[in-house]
Amino acid sequence: MPWTLTDCPDQSGRIALITGANSGLGLETARALSGRGATVVLACRSRSRGEEARSELLPAATAGLEVLELDLADLASVRAGACWMQEHYGRLDLLLNNAGVMAPPRCLTHDGFELQFGTNHLGHFALTSALLPLMEGRPDARVVTVTSGAQYFGRIAFDDLQAERRYDRWAAYSQSKLANVMFALELQQRLEAAGSTVASLAAHPGLARTNLQPASVVANGSRLEELAYRLMDPLFQSAAMGALPQLHAATAPTATGGEHYGPDQWGGMRGWPTQVRIAPAALDPVQRRRLWEVSEVLTEARS
């Protein structure tokens, strides 16, 4: 039998923080968790869009909903968000590293990183590092990092991480998504070695309709890309379906650290959540350790 939203267990008493919770996968994840009793913190770059999402979710929410203004492309904002969580809650049960940007023209984060690597990977790396102390000792605490099928095409360009010499927007996106799953696996290994109570998992949505596709079209002004999305539209599933793998990773009693979930049909493009293969490039522990160490240096240097 497929795992559906009705299988999501009761989350009463648990606190969840979701990045990018104002739209798409993040909004649907927030809808599901808040409807199951979790107190949900909507971590959004735009407070106004976060408040709009909160208003949409409130009628069906069974516990608290709060908006946290947090910009993953600004490490000072990440640190401030982590401090806010410490001051307001002092604990955290679920962290869903969901937010992301996809294939824009080359631009930089506030701290000077290539936007996709800086937001999708480094921002979540820094946020997770700052929030882990709030999760330690909590029953069944989990970090779920959302990647995509682009991980299978990714390569970590250690000699040009910020794409200063050559920028290909899709290669940069694939690098950031490969970095997401490498981070999730390396985090799990380090948590296990430290005897931590926290588990780290990864998930990807397959082809899901979110704001990433139209945002990419607008950012690049590409009519060809717009046409491609129109032709591919029948393959896309809803954001609610796309959110199921990360909800499964975050809540299913059978899901354990180090696992990776995605859709079960059409080569992982759509369907119900199941355990799916990890990009071969992410299985190299030496490369994962190297990425972790580089990420530590880059994020701490901006602290």
Rank of each mutant, 00 (worst) to 15 (best):
D93W: 04
S216N: 14
L57Y: 13
G258Y: 05
L131P: 04
E186I: 07
Q86C: 08
L57A: 12
Q213F: 10
S12A: 13
W266M: 13
V198D: 00
A203Y: 12
G90D: 03
S129I: 09
Q265G: 13
L5N: 03
V276N: 12
R91E: 08
V198A: 01
W292M: 08
V217T: 08
Q189N: 14
S200A: 14
E114C: 07
V198Q: 06
T29S: 13
T109W: 10
L57S: 10
R165I: 04
A76S: 15
R106N: 13
A21G: 11
L127C: 07
Q265C: 10
A239C: 13
L191P: 04
A281C: 02
Q175I: 11
L115G: 01
E51H: 04
Y229G: 12
P59D: 09
H110Y: 08
R49Y: 02
S222C: 10
V217H: 05
G154M: 02
P273S: 00
E136A: 11
D7H: 06
L298F: 07
C44V: 09
E226D: 15
P273D: 00
V41A: 01
G267C: 06
L161Y: 11
L298M: 14
A172E: 13
A141N: 00
I278K: 14
E69W: 10
A130F: 10
T6R: 10
G221W: 05
M269H: 11
A282N: 12
A199P: 03
P205D: 06
A16P: 09
T274W: 03
Q11D: 05
S295P: 13
I18S: 03
M232R: 10
L70E: 10
